[in-house]
Amino acid sequence: MTAAVVAERLRVPICAALVLGTWQIVFLSGVVPEKYFPSILSIATAFWQMLADGSVLTAWAQTFGRALIGLVGAAALGITLAILSDLSPVLSRGFRYVSDVLQPIPPAAFVPMAVFMLGLGAKLYAFVIILVTVWPPYLNGVAALSGVGAVQLNTGRMFGLSNWGLLWRIKLPAALPEIFTGIRYAATISLIAVIVSEMLAGRDGIGFMIFKKAFALRTPEVFGLMFLVGLNGVLLNGLVNLLRRAVTGWHLRMMERPE
């Protein structure tokens, strides 16, 4: 086995060792006071304690559940809006104006008004998460649906598909790969929106926990929780990819094939 093959096989442990090693070197150099930059070991210990008393698992389940529900809702709404846009040029232009205005607003900016309107709780999370997460599936959906080629549509019409048939049997299947690209972006945005909402208006969840621990200067716990947030992203992306492989596996294999 050559060195390159060994490096390829061991890429995950090598990368982990590099990151952890750099962290530990910064820690040992003392550039940042230990109070704000704890060692790997103290982060791990703090994380283990939170795991052992169960608090972190509950918080994780709440946060991940909210992100997942928000993502599913946003994807469903985004695809619905994209289909409506495809059916009606008037709606399409209208939605486009709305999305141009709403899209640049960060989740944090929605929270105060959402608290007044909806109170604290599930409605607030749903509102904030879906409002910031809906755009990538919607925009990708619009682009993909309008990009379906004339030859494919003529093929469908030739074999007797109605306009509805064309939408369900030609346009949507053809557009799904691009829609899934939007859903992958949306997954990350959904997680960000959940954490922000929990920090600003939450009573539980990882975002709320991070805020609480940070104010108590429990730095190792804060870093541990941040790591967990990152893991959530990996997990949510993994779920989206599983679904994507199940629904549009043909497209992934088509893209992977050697020319």
């Binding site: 080629g149 030859v151 494919q152 003529n154 093929t155 019409r157 030739m158 074999f159 007797g160 030609i170 299947p173 053809a174 549009t248 043909w250 497209h251 088509m254």
Partner: peptide
């Protein structure tokens, strides 16, 4: 007035006419 049953078109651009999924 619409594509009738019993008539079919074979398009030049087969890669777009066949449904890749």
């Amino acid at each position: 007035d619409q594509p009738p049953i019993g008539l079919s078109v074979v398009f030049q651009d087969y890669s777009r006419s066949l449904l890749p999924w």
